[in-house]
């Protein structure tokens, strides 16, 4: 017989993740938007911290001293990762949004294979490039030690 328990529906941005199972492109969409937000926040912080120079030479070098630690280097690396993803995936989106790589309109034949399948190679290439960039950046971080 019926069993019941109380529950809530996720709302807003939570539904990006809680809205059900997504496809690869769906997760890329979520990462793209989150990385975009992250980059925007970084940019604002960057402008703010750069503005510290206005307070004089001393304040600036103090800040630089403080910034020179592994945690912040790692955070910087994350900014780089977000940038690499957002830039390359953004280029991919620009290509698709002008309707390249998704094929001409056609009579769909069941089982339906849509534009996602047609443009998937492009997506894979973009992700390989992102991977290479992230790896290269990580190598730089570890090997060069700064």
């Amino acid at each position: 017989m019926a069993v019941s328990e109380k529950t809530m529906r996720p709302s807003g941005i939570l539904r990006w993740l809680g809205g059900g199972r997504r496809g690869l492109e769906g997760y890329l969409y979520v990462i793209h938007r989150i990385s975009g937000l992250a980059l925007l926040m970084f940019l604002m912080m960057h402008v703010f911290f750069t503005g510290v120079r206005l307070l004089g030479e001393e304040a600036w070098s103090g800040l630089m001293e403080m910034a020179n630690n592994p945690v912040l280097h790692f955070l910087e690396y994350l900014v780089y990762v977000a940038f690499a993803f957002h830039a390359v995936n953004g280029l991919r989106l620009i290509i698709i949004e002008l309707a390249f790589g998704i094929g001409p309109p056609d009579e769909p034949v069941y089982p339906y294979k849509g534009s996602i399948h047609k443009q998937r190679p492009l997506m894979l290439i973009a992700m390989v490039i992102v991977g290479i960039l992230i790896f290269a950046g990580g190598f730089d971080l570890v090997a060069m030690g700064h």
Binding site: G23, L28, Y29, G114, S115
Partner: peptide, 18 residues
């Protein structure tokens, strides 16, 4: 921004993303 979820779930092969 082309998540293409619409095309993935469409039961009739409409392919809205396209």
């Amino acid at each position: 921004h082309y998540a293409a979820e619409c095309s993935k779930v469409c039961p009739k092969g409409v392919d809205p993303a396209k």
